[in-house]
């Protein structure tokens, strides 16, 4: 250990605030980046799952746009 006591380690001869702020920001940003990337990955994975679960049974399913436009046009012309 390069320091005599724990207090000396925290104070670092007056340079403590500078050193600790840097390490704090580093840990927060890196951990934040990891967490953000991980959560986005989960969200995209779940979105994919939803798409395929709805299409799973019929083979084509609801993921394909339904021919509703045509029907609607026909009704409005009546």
């Amino acid at each position: 250990m390069a320091f005599d006591s724990f207090t000396a380690f925290i104070l670092m001869d007056g340079h403590g605030p500078y050193v600790w702020v840097c390490y704090g920001v580093f840990v927060v940003l890196i951990a934040g980046m990891m967490l953000w990337s991980w959560r986005r990955h989960r969200a995209v994975l779940q979105a994919c799952r939803r798409v395929h679960e709805t299409t799973d049974e019929s083979g084509r399913g609801s993921a394909q746009p339904a021919p509703a436009t045509f029907t609607r046009v026909k009704v409005s012309q009546d």
Binding site: D13, H15, G16, V19, C22
Partner: peptide, 20 residues
């Protein structure tokens, strides 16, 4: 942070180097 020796010129502030 805790075990590397102090820098003779910059003191302990140089410990920022390990992330900078």
């Amino acid at each position: 942070l805790a075990f590397a020796p102090k820098d003779y010129l910059q003191g302990n502030s140089y410990r920022i180097i390990f992330i900078h």
